[in-house]
């Protein structure tokens, strides 16, 4: 970063963002606010059934009611936090699992590297949702198995990135110098590579997070999600789908929320990735 970029006031740096990215950040901030304040924003008990089934919006229910007479707005407010939390946990599990596996594989030498990356290849070959399905039925549906299943199925993305960065760092003169000085693979992995993969991992996290959120919704939609009672977006979508003719609002509310948040996250992740490839390309020259 140049001195000029550091001293530039914050306002112009914000103005440098294009309108789509600004919209994306706005959506994220609103979603985070709802996630944290959800229980206080809810106007009704999100779990309470009532006789007013599939009511249109208005009439004391801001977004109407669902097939069980539950208030859609309140469910949405509480569900936002749940969906974001499960999605973020899954992406975090994937990051840690993938990065740690790759670092261990790279530190312990070629045979172990080949063996561990064969496992990575295996997970990569199975279509994600199907892998998660098998995993979840094996460990009983529930929050824990959903997060773990998605974490494992997305871990290869992080493992591949870590290995690529490791190899990139290994080609740098300073790691070569460290090697000459007698540093082993493990030391190089911990002292030299680990501090340098942060950016790549964060970018990958931004790309994987929306996919985890969507996957959690798809799993809930298929009836294998976190819980049949908690109003995560996917669960709301699943319960509203059979009634989409009578109560399209009950389906539309969670699907718009899901789409807006995943759209915003993907826009930011993509911008981040582009920035990273630009800077690495420039610094390579």
């Amino acid at each position: 970063m140049t001195a000029e970029a550091l001293t530039r006031p914050v306002r112009t740096r914000l103005a440098g963002l294009d309108p789509v990215t600004m919209l994306a950040w706005l959506i994220i901030i609103i979603a985070l606010f709802i996630a944290l304040a959800g229980p206080f924003l809810a106007t009704h008990d999100p779990m309470m059934f009532s006789a007013e089934m599939n009511e249109q919006p208005g009439n004391g229910h801001l977004l109407g009611t669902d097939d069980g007479g539950r208030d859609v707005f309140s469910r949405l407010m509480v569900g936002t936090g749940l969906s974001l939390f499960y999605g973020a946990s899954a992406a975090m599990v994937a990051l840690v699992l993938g990065a740690v596996t790759a670092l261990i594989a790279m530190s312990l030498g070629k045979p172990i590297e080949l063996a561990l990356f064969a496992v990575v290849d295996l997970v990569r070959a199975l279509p994600g949702i199907l892998f998660a399905l098998a995993f979840i039925v094996a460990f009983e549906p529930g929050a824990f198995s959903v997060v773990l299943a998605l974490g494992v199925s997305f871990a290869p993305n992080f493992a591949m990135i870590t290995r690529a960065t490791y190899e990139q760092q290994l080609a740098q003169p300073y790691t070569a110098a460290a090697k000459v000085l007698g540093a082993g693979r493990g030391r190089i992995a911990l002292i030299h590579v680990l501090p340098n993969i942060g950016g790549a991992l964060i970018t990958q996290f931004a790309i994987i997070l929306p996919r985890c959120i969507v996957s959690e919704s798809v799993l809930s939609f298929l009836g294998l999600g976190v819980s049949s009672e908690l109003p995560s977006w996917g669960r709301m979508i699943a319960t509203a789908t059979p009634y989409m003719e009578e109560a399209p609002h009950a389906l539309l509310a969670p699907i718009i929320m899901l789409s807006a948040v995943t759209f915003a996250l993907a826009i930011i992740g993509n911008a981040q990735r582009q920035r990273l490839t630009h800077t690495t390309k420039r610094s390579a020259i």
Partner: peptide, 23 residues
């Protein structure tokens, strides 16, 4: 390109069901 990165087929599928089938 941006569409395929940002819009999951799952949500667009359900939205088009509401728009094209219900409405």
């Amino acid at each position: 390109t941006i569409w395929s990165i940002t819009v999951p087929t799952f949500s667009i599928g359900i939205m088009s069901l509401i728009v094209f089938a219900v409405w």
